[in-house]
Design a protein around this nucleic acid. Structure first.
Lengths: 190, 190
DNA sequence: GAGTTGGGAAACCGATCGGTATACAGGGTG
DNA sequence: CACCCTGTATACCGATCGGTTTCCCAACTC
């Protein structure tokens, strides 16, 4: 009946990986990972080339979900400004969860200081995609310099995520949305 | 003659720690650390209680230098706005160095996801101190909500540092200073 | 010269790292 | 039935982890 018990080893591995890497960092270890996923190391090493590739795959797998999380359900009615604010409202909501640890993609980039790591490439991709989404809305909204505004929004997004994740800031009072509102105003966005 | 060869084991250890933790992350290991410092593990463990305390001590040691780095040489002439911009100009300059890896204190908070870790407390302290410096200047500059502006500046500071350190952003064109200028303007700061 | 001390070299502890190899149990297909 | 294919369990590899301990030498004090 329930499909829950029938997840493939691959899926169980990727799900456990995403969870453990996020909660405990990238240095979790193959041993703990496989134990948590209920998969033997042998199976893992014939599904993935290495631990590094596993990490990259688990990030890639979460990507669609992560981006959907930040994308407003498209009602043609909402303005570019609204669509941008939606992203930051979601960030503020997510950061309220007790197990929030910041953006997993930024965290991976910080922890793996190696820019050549396969997982770093995935993380950069996700970041670039978000930024280009901001730029698109900035253009639609008539910002004076859409690319500049998009980069500013990314500073706020990553700064807010990191600080909330590290528990040195709380976004509960609308700090992020307030800040980006000021920046969009300053950029002449309607 | 040269005092360079006479650094105490403690100092050699702390300096090597600061360097290696910054370059390679907090998972460096006691072995590599002592080798790099030219100090035996025995000496290290009678100077510090544990590896964790060592990390905290090395962060604490760098603290004065780090904060001085961001503090303008006080000429009574410069405005609060100038003093804030000075911080972000220094950030932009520092981020241009090829071995720049972002703010070491934020990195530690991200890597050690444990908020109870002794090093996390040091890092939080440094961040709080910077924020309160911003607030002081915001008050002096007549910002409508000094505390809010200070928090916004911290978002930009940490976002810019993290993104530049991860090599997904370049601050060379004045992105950070431009952004905080817009925020200070919006806050009604003179 | 005798005694004390600081600190480096290195062995050692059990645990874990990433990764490999061997052995075996279950399910389909002939 | 035999056959193969997945996947688990497990032992194993050399290396490293944080941390402790032993040994010994060089510099200092008396």
């Amino acid at each position: 009946m329930a499909t829950t018990a029938k997840a493939s080893p691959r899926d169980r591995l990727l799900d456990a990986a995403a969870q453990l890497f996020y909660r405990d960092g990238v240095s979790i270890g193959v041993e703990a990972l496989c134990r948590s996923a209920g998969v033997s190391k042998r199976s893992m090493y014939q599904l993935f080339e290495s631990n590094d590739e596993m990490l990259a795959a688990s990030l890639e797998r979460r990507r669609a979900w992560y981006e959907a999380q930040l994308t407003p359900p498209d009602s043609a009615s909402d303005t570019p400004r609204e669509r941008i604010l939606y992203v930051f409202r979601r960030l503020e909501q997510a950061s309220a969860a007790p197990d929030y640890r910041g953006c997993p993609y930024l965290a991976v980039l910080v922890e793996l200081k190696d820019t050549e790591h396969p997982a770093s490439a995935v993380a950069r991709d996700v970041k670039d995609h978000l930024e280009s989404g901001f730029r698109t809305q900035a253009e639609r909204g008539g910002a004076r310099d859409p690319r500049l505004l998009a980069r500013q929004l990314m500073l706020v997004f990553d700064g807010a995520g990191a600080r909330a994740g590290a528990r040195i800031e709380t976004l509960a009072d609308g700090l992020a949305t307030g800040t980006v509102t000021a920046l969009m105003d300053a950029a002449g966005m309607k």
